[in-house]
Amino acid sequence: MPAADTIPSSDQRSRTDARHDAWFRGLLKFCALLVLAALLGAALSTLWGGREVLFKDGFHFLASDAWNPVSDDYGALAPIFGTLVTSLIALVLAVPVSFGIALFLTEIAPTWLRGPVATAIELLASIPSIIYGMWGLFVFVPFMASIEPMLSDTLGKLPLVGKLFEGPPLGLGLLTAGIVLAVMILPFICSVMREVFQTVPVRLKESSYALGSTTWEVVWDIVLPYTRSAVIGGIFLGLGRALGETMAVTFVLGNAYSITSSLLMPGTSISSSIANEFNEAVGTHRSALIALGFLLFVVTFVVLLIARLMLRRLARKEGH
């Protein structure tokens, strides 16, 4: 039996421990809640900063394509148009290429090649966006200017899609920005696809091979249906990146407030409008730019929400 006088002291000790535990837990919880505060704060602060434009004449702001700092008349249509068009071009180009790379890395390449190539593709994601912008402006824009006449002469002559490839070969423009964005988001989509392709049970694939399927049939009929929701999630993740990307598109977009049918014409996007004009803007102009930021945040939030939900479905299927 312990001596009588040690009992209260050990009791006291466990009480101190419990108190410290509660403090520690509180501290950790506070830090975790800061993550929520950051997201909520970003939404609320841009809403507050853009209130002058958003609430005074909200519908006009959303539906007008005017952007005139002199008469203080702002409409978000042209930047929204540019953001959507460049992101769509990026998706159309990046999704098949990412799929091809993921297929190569999971099914075709010899094992010794997979690691290095996967690392190289992921390095594309760690190159800062300003470098993409510089490369885009100084190297890729002249390159595009040299091949755009060819595009106009061939694709531009087609019915229907021909309209998309008309116009002077400036090099700058929606198409160029879309291609640069495609290169930027490719590693994100690819790494999701590669990761989920590896979760497909080997048994399923081997059964299919045993029935005489070709590699392509295994991928198209077994792997892809099995991972469908996560692949869509990965694509939305890439879309979220593309919508919010600033530096890579600002240089190559041409900064023109116009809505055109041709992809070769210059345009603007939400993020590049903000980056280009914010520091010179005052009053309503600045408020309009912050309101644009709010729109961008809401749109990307929804897109990323869908992406994460789709990705989580697969995680649940795995039993995590």
Partner: peptide, 8 residues
């Protein structure tokens, strides 16, 4: 937040 637009 990981992929939220940095400009915002």
């Amino acid at each position: 937040l990981l992929s939220a637009p940095s400009i915002v």
